[in-house]
């Protein structure tokens, strides 16, 4: 087997792990990393996106539009959740754990009762291609590109737009932002909706490749929290390098020793990073800069 084939396969596996980590984590990076709300219902926002995507595709919409619907539906649910529950708990971060955990239980069981134990899949589009002895799914490349696009969009949103600047100001020093005339309540709502929508986007993008069941969010949540915890508070400077490092560890260990060691490697990498850089990667990068 020649070097090019091996290199491509390693790159593909890295990209695949990177896409999964980044897409599962970016919504949480906004809600948990930036806003400090420990959102245990993150997986259920992902599930919501996946279900709405599948339902709209079954109803006849093309997949990209379905994913858009899934994203918007999750964002809308995010606004509702923020208005009804999270808004009252910004001063009590530990209570958000209980509240969001309760929400996640309600969402999982509610979906089971209302929609049933499974939902029919929609099938992965685009087919496959061959490199050397291996064949690969084209959609996995699409996921990787989508992860890069989401990261770029988040960077642009929080650094180059008025909303992004106001959101960062509001979250860093809320009373100063309010004194300068910013509607901080609205900004909090919109930021939370943005995080929920990103979770829905992850769900929509992965919906064609996975079993659609009420508990599907649980398969994302470990990777999401791990990536955000080692990434730190900055959405772009944290999530991107954290996703990169963890993807290298995970895909390397998995190809060497199988899935179990991939998971073990992932968690050991997290322990080491958190021990060495308690504020996460972005905390380290930003301290160096100032």
């Amino acid at each position: 087997m020649d070097i090019a084939t091996l290199a491509f396969s390693a790159l593909y596996q890295f990209g695949d792990a990177f896409a999964f980590l980044v897409l599962s984590a970016c919504g949480l990076a906004v809600i948990f990393g930036m806003m400090g709300v420990i959102n245990l219902a993150h997986g259920e926002f992902i599930m919501c996106g996946a279900y709405v995507t599948a339902a709209t595709v079954h109803a006849g919409l093309p997949l990209p539009l379905g994913i858009l619907c899934g994203t918007l539906a999750s964002a809308f649910v995010g606004v509702l959740v923020e208005l009804l529950v999270i808004r009252h708990l910004y001063e009590r971060p530990l209570d958000t754990i209980v509240a969001t955990w309760g929400l996640s239980l309600i969402a999982t069981q509610g979906t089971l009762i209302l929609v049933g134990s499974t939902m029919a899949g929609v099938g992965t589009p685009f087919g496959s291609f061959q490199v050397g002895a291996y064949s690969y799914s084209i959609y996995r490349i699409v996921l990787f590109v989508a992860a890069l696009a989401v990261l770029a969009a988040l960077y642009a949103l929080f650094n180059w737009t008025r909303f992004g600047v106001l959101a960062r100001a509001t979250i860093q020093v809320p009373h100063m932002a309010a004194a300068l005339g910013v509607d901080t309540r609205l900004i909090y709502s919109l930021t939370f909706a943005c995080g929920a929508g990103l979770a829905g986007l992850a769900g929509g993008l992965y919906a064609p490749t996975m079993t659609l069941v009420p508990t599907m969010g649980a398969t994302f949540i470990m990777e999401a929290f791990v990536t955000v915890v080692i990434g730190g508070a900055d959405v772009f400077l944290g999530t991107a390098p954290a996703g990169g490092i963890l993807a290298i560890v995970k895909s390397g260990m998995t190809s060497w020793q199988g899935q179990l060691f991939g998971q073990i490697g992932l968690l050991i990498a997290v322990i080491i990073v958190v021990r060495v850089l308690p504020k996460g990667i972005s905390g380290f990068v930003l301290r160096e800069r100032t």
Partner: peptide, 22 residues
């Protein structure tokens, strides 16, 4: 042979291992 922990949902690497073993 490969053993997959319960709850794992991503199989790209396992798929490649299978293709390698033919």
């Amino acid at each position: 042979e490969e053993f997959i922990p319960l709850g794992v949902s991503q199989f790209s690497q396992s798929i490649q291992n299978i293709q390698k073993a033919k």
